[in-house]
Design a protein around this nucleic acid. Structure first.
Length: 199
DNA sequence: TCAGTCAATCTGTCAA
DNA sequence: TTGACAGATTGACTGA
């Protein structure tokens, strides 16, 4: 019984949900970002010279970590380029960094987190989807059990239906039928959620 | 061996 | 004060 889609061995269901995946609503950008005025910290400046290995120049002890806040424009451009490609080659990274006045490492980290977080979101949505699917299958199972009970009851009554064991399920539409009365077919509208349904 | 990626986690910032 | 979000770090893994 193919409950899961064929390529579900690693849950890569690729559910196409409007507004997600390629252009997620990016909670921060428009959402909470609306009103959150991005202040340009010094971290946003392109590091002067011997940068990447962090600010080792602050004397002995580690300096307090100042957090970079991307400007709206920076976020927008990063989102745009993420939409085009979820990974960057070194040249693209370098170019983007230069364009946005950020370090390549920061671009790299942004993409890394972006990938991770969209994957997380997708997983959450798949989870919801499977929960709903489970619910509808449970419901369908219940209905089929009741149908079997009814047919068994009919068996002890008038001798029209020969046996409940003569019930068959149509392999294509997965409806329960009897040889005697195909009209007993079970409506199976809840077999699959709309996206995956082939009926 | 090295560079790139990922998962897990830490941590600073902000809004409620 | 707290929870959510997002930038950053770390260590493991993998392919060239």
């Amino acid at each position: 019984m193919a409950i899961l889609p064929e390529n579900s061995s690693h849950l890569d269901l690729t559910i196409s949900v409007p507004g997600f995946s390629s252009s997620p609503p990016s909670v921060s950008d428009e959402g909470s970002g609306g009103g959150r005025e991005q202040l340009k910290l010094d971290m946003n400046r392109l590091p002067s010279s011997s940068e990447d290995d962090e600010e080792l120049s602050h004397g002995g002890s580690a300096p307090p970590r100042k957090k970079l806040r991307l400007t709206r424009e920076q976020s927008r451009l990063l989102e745009d380029s993420f939409r085009q490609n979820h990974t960057l080659n070194p040249k693209q990274k370098e170019a983007l960094a230069k364009h946005l006045m950020l370090r390549p490492r920061q671009i790299e980290v942004w993409f890394q987190n972006r990938r991770a977080r969209s994957k997380l979101k997708q997983t959450e949505m798949e989870c919801e989807y499977l929960k709903r699917w489970f619910g509808s299958l449970t419901e369908q199972n219940y209905r089929l059990h009741r149908e079997v009970e009814e047919l068994r009851a009919m068996k002890v009554g008038p001798a029209t239906v020969t046996s409940a064991s003569s019930l068959t399920m149509c392999p294509r539409c997965e409806r329960v039928t009897t040889a005697a009365s195909p009209s007993l077919a079970v409506p199976s509208q809840t077999t699959l959620p709309p996206q995956e349904s082939e009926h």
